[in-house]
Structure formats: C-alpha cells, structure tokens
Design a protein around this nucleic acid. Structure first.
Lengths: 194, 194
DNA sequence: CGTGGAGTTGAATACGATCAACACCGGTGG
DNA sequence: CCACCGGTGTTGATCGTATTCAACTCCACG
C-alpha cells in the first residue's frame, strides 16, 4: 500500500508526512493476479509503476511469436514504457505480472507536482535515470560481447533472488537464448563445478 | 566552438546570452585528431562530451581483444560514460575520435550550476535522459530479437548519414556481428533488391 | 490418479564465427 | 609514372554455438 511507498521515499529523500499527503493524492494502489497483462503493447498510458509486492516483467513479442524480456521489476523497482509514459506514443512492450503483484500507479502529473513541491525529488529522480542508463549500457555490452554462459552468470550475480522466482523460460528470454540452450548452459556449469 | 553550443542550447531552451555567459565559464572546447583515444577505460573523469564537429564512438574491448561499440556520437550528440561521469567510478568504455573532432567538454559542476541558474535546464535534461533510455530499450530489444540483417536495416534507418562516415568494421561491431558477416548481409540485401 | 506445464535430453539444422586468401584503393616513395 | 604497401572489404571453406523439433521426465495441481 501507500505506506510502503512512503517509507521507501523517505529513505531516499527528505520528505515529511505532510508533504507525502500532498503528492500522494495523485497515486493509486493497484493489484494484479499472477499472469495478468498489466499493459498491452501499442497502448498509451502515461504512468509509471512502482512495485511494492510481487514481480512485473516488460517484454515484446516478435513476428515469430517469441517473447523477449526487456526488464524485470521486483519489489522497490520502477517500471514504465518510455514511449508511452514519457512521450505519449504507443507502447513498445507488454507488461505482465509474473507473480501476484501490488504496485503504486503514478501518472505523469505525479512527477510534475513532486518536482514542484519537493526540490530534492528532481535531483533524486535524475540519479535514478542515470543509474538506469548505466545498467542498460552494461546490458548492451554483455549482449554484444558475452557468450550465453557469461550472460547467465552475470544475471545470477545481478538478481540472485530472481533465480528462484522466475521460470527458466523467462530467464532464457531475458538472456536472449532459448530455454533449451539455457538448460544446457546450466548442465555444463554444474558438471564444471561439481 | 562555444558559439555553436550556445546556438544549440538556445534552440532547446530559453537562454539569454547573459545566462550563457554565466554557465559557459565551466566548459572547455577540445579538439581531437582522428584516431585519438579521448578517454581510456577504467579511468575517472567526471565530464560529458557534446560533439560540435566530427564523430566519437564509445566501445569496450573484450578478453579476446575484440571491440564492441556501445554508441556513436556525431554532431550535436551527447556522450559520456555513466560510471565515470555520474558515479565517479572507473569508466566501462573507451572513447575514440572516429574523425577529426571538436567537442564541448562539460564537467559535472556545469550541470549543477546550469540546474541552479536555469530552471528549464533541468526539465530539458530530463527529457534527454528519458529519450536516451528509450533508445537503449529499443536497442536491447533488437539485440534480443532481430537477425543480423534486421539490425543492419534498422541501423541504416536510424543513422543514414553514418553509413558513409564509418568503416564497415565499426558498423559490424555496433551491430554485434563480425565484419565478414556484415559483408555477407550486404551482399544478400543487394541481390535481393537488385 | 490423470493432466498439463516446465524442464531436460537428443539429433539434425542453421546461422554466424573463424581462418585464410585475395581484390581493391589511396597514399608514399623510388 | 610506376611499384609498393597497408588498410578495408570481399569471398570461400570449415567450424562451433545456439536453434529447432521432437520425445521424454518430473512435478504440481486438479
């Protein structure tokens, strides 16, 4: 619920309870059952999701019907489709609830008012954006340069907890390989390290 | 020179000549001959480059000595290594001048003062960050889902001018394939379309 | 118990990588 | 003016990694 989001924010920036009251009128709490499509491709919905419980994934489907996962969003992660959220264009992704999930739904104007009322909010949000770019640059580099095995090892280091929450099929589609290939990579690693 | 940067900024945001004077004291003009390494990997330099003339590329070198291009930056593009620029950690990339190049060199404090003196600068900078994330999300999706040929076609649409400025070897390493493969892709496309 | 989805394994295939040779072009110096 | 050179791109032959398609196991859940 909103309480958890407030706690999170107060850990990140200076924020009184009163200030939170002012900005929180814009936000909604939404829950989704496992497997629900939270957002369809090619739709416009100028909002960001903040996950308070559960797990979301953003993915595309190519012309052969295969899914490709752009990003996972577990607890305390942000997720949005930039095309839709920020530029008002049709979304590139689908967003789906991988588990039963609860999110804070933040329309664009939430950010406008937060930026107005809380000077430090802007600076903090900028850090998040830079950090997100840093992560994506690293991911691009891995996709360009690393083998399936190396990418899998990196994934395990980056999201140790997701390993046990996400079916292997989805991990494979995040890594850009088939589920069969991932299975073989895992087998090779297992025999390698005993 | 700085004049070109001013013109660029004034097209983007409200900015008087006096305001530009105030913020421009922080910036430097630098030039690099073709082939110069502008920034080494694993160095810390908290600055951003704005290209006024020429072309930069950001790339990594893997353990086999192969290069992988993360990004090109032609005229009026921004380029930085987030690790170094924003987080003060050793850089992930090399940056090299692909052509004789002139840049505006913007230390981190330039952004601090610009944010202070020009309220609209922050908002505009945020748009740039969101846009850059959008581009990277799209690139990740392509790397996950598209064949070498499809990625090449997308590259041509996105950077029609770079086609003729960048050696094929570099395009290949941006696309994540070998120069030989790119050559074959081009041949296949040529025979396909006459 | 059965049923269906997730994961594993095997065999055949395809796509891009690798290694090597060669063509082409622009620049340099005899 | 020509011979040489190095860098860039092309082509061919072979190799390797991941894909595809199919069968099978294993649970979780009804």
């Amino acid at each position: 619920m909103k309480e958890q989001f407030k706690t999170y924010l107060q850990k990140q920036i200076e924020l009184t309870d009163e200030q939170f009251e002012l900005i929180s009128s814009e936000i909604l709490v939404k829950t989704f059952k496992k497997g629900t499509i939270v957002m369809q491709q090619n739709t416009i919905d100028e909002a960001t999701y903040f996950v308070t419980k559960g797990l979301l994934r953003a993915y595309t489907i190519d012309e052969n019907g295969k899914e490709h996962i752009i990003q996972f969003a577990p607890e305390n992660w942000w997720l949005n489709d930039k095309n839709s959220f920020y530029f008002g264009e049709p979304s590139l992704f689908f967003i789906e609830a991988v588990e039963d999930t609860e999110v804070i739904y933040l329309p664009k104007q939430f950010f406008d008012t937060a930026n107005h009322l809380l000077p430090c909010f802007t600076a903090w949000n900028t850090v998040i954006l830079h950090n997100s770019i840093r992560f994506m640059q690293k991911r691009i580099n891995l996709l360009l340069s690393a083998t399936a095995e190396a990418r899998y090892l990196d994934f395990m280091k980056l999201y140790p907890n997701l390993m046990f929450r996400v079916p292997q099929t989805m991990i494979a589609s995040y890594l850009g390989i088939t589920p069969e290939s991932l299975s073989r990579v895992r087998k090779a690693l297992a025999t390698k390290h005993g």
